[in-house]
């Protein structure tokens, strides 16, 4: 859809740690009973990503599945696949009790990249981001200063942050301010 623009249209605050809004990102919220027959198999098959354990995010190529709560997943995919993938999931789970919603436009996704990326987050979230406590593959839903967000760590050590679209400016400014203030020298 040529008219579609992400919350900050790829805004970047470059520095030792760079904060960048990652543009349009497909996101699908799926609620259902993970124990239900074929649920895991259906989702694994449709999305093409292994099913995540508690508080884990699993990726395969440009798709990921994140565990958000005992009955909620967040599926990430390219923006232009979100509508069709949502429809496929709805069709595949038709016999079950579930709820699937395309929330691609309701969120903003940021990358926080650089040597003290974890400290940039540790300034705004009450979370232990030390390497031993927060590993690659863990997704943490928490409070980013005054708004809700989710954070996970990529293989390269950079962090991904998701927040609601309406507070994308706030979250960007928050992370950029935190990055600009420099390292703490702990994490």
């Amino acid at each position: 859809m040529s008219n579609a623009v992400s919350a900050l249209n790829g805004k970047v605050a470059a520095g030792d740690v760079t904060v960048a809004e990652m543009g349009l990102q497909g996101m699908i919220s799926l609620r259902g009973s993970f124990d239900a027959e074929d649920f895991v198999a259906t989702i694994t098959h449709l999305v093409g990503v292994d099913f995540p354990d508690v508080r884990q995010i699993v990726s395969n190529g440009e798709r990921s599945v994140a565990w958000m709560s005992p009955d909620e997943l967040l599926i990430l995919c390219p923006y232009d696949q979100a509508v069709s993938l949502t429809a496929q999931i709805a069709e595949a789970l038709a016999e079950q009790h579930f709820l699937v919603a395309n929330v691609s436009d309701a969120r903003a996704l940021f990358s926080v990249t650089g040597p003290f990326a974890a400290e940039v987050l540790a300034k705004v979230a009450p979370v232990d981001f030390s390497a031993s406590a927060f590993a690659v593959g863990e997704v943490r839903r928490t409070r980013l200063a005054q708004v809700a967000g989710a954070v996970w760590k990529e293989q390269d050590g950079s962090l991904r942050v998701v927040c609601f679209r309406s507070v994308a400016h706030y979250t960007f400014d928050l992370l950029a301010t935190s990055a600009k203030a420099g390292p703490v020298g702990v994490l």
């Binding site: 005054q146 309406s166 994308a168």
Partner: peptide, 15 residues
């Protein structure tokens, strides 16, 4: 802390 000016409190914006 850092909560001043633009990040004193969240401002929610519509598209």
């Amino acid at each position: 802390g850092a909560a001043r000016d633009a990040i004193f409190q969240p401002l929610r914006r519509t598209p």
